[in-house]
Amino acid sequence: MPRARLLRQRLLSLFLAALLLLFSPLVLQFQGLGNWFGVPILALYLFGVWGLIIVVAAWIVSRSRD
């Protein structure tokens, strides 16, 4: 059972980190920076963080199966 507890702790840590990265004043820092190749920097930040969260969650879950 310790593995299940460790998995739960890692996923909870990822969730809290995601909340911090997506719903904090940090997001507002990217609001007025302009565009990069016609795409707003804020959109790039949000989609980048979202993708990173998915990759880290998949890595945590796949690592727990070993």
Rank of each mutant, 00 (worst) to 15 (best):
M1G: 10
M1L: 10
R3M: 07
A4E: 14
A4V: 05
L6T: 13
L6H: 10
L7R: 10
L7S: 04
L7Y: 04
L7N: 06
R8L: 15
R8I: 04
R10Y: 07
L11Q: 07
L12C: 08
L12Q: 07
L12R: 08
L12S: 09
L12Y: 12
S13D: 08
L14T: 09
L16R: 11
L16V: 10
A17L: 13
A17Y: 01
A17W: 07
A18D: 01
A18G: 03
L19M: 15
L20R: 00
L20I: 06
L20Y: 11
L21S: 06
L22E: 02
F23G: 00
F23L: 15
F23W: 12
S24T: 14
P25L: 09
P25M: 00
L26V: 11
L26K: 06
L26R: 06
L26C: 08
L28I: 04
Q29D: 05
Q29I: 11
Q29T: 13
Q29N: 08
F30Y: 15
F30K: 08
Q31I: 13
Q31A: 13
Q31H: 10
L33F: 02
N35E: 15
W36D: 06
F37C: 00
F37Q: 14
G38C: 05
P40L: 02
I41P: 00
L42W: 01
A43K: 07
A43I: 09
A43W: 11
L44K: 04
L44M: 15
Y45Q: 06
F47H: 12
F47Q: 04
V49T: 12
W50K: 01
W50S: 15
L52F: 07
I53H: 02
I53P: 01
I53K: 01
I53F: 02
V55R: 12
V55M: 09
A58K: 06
W59S: 12
W59M: 12
I60A: 01
I60D: 06
V61T: 12
V61C: 02
S62V: 07
R63N: 11
R63T: 13
R63W: 12
S64F: 14
S64L: 03
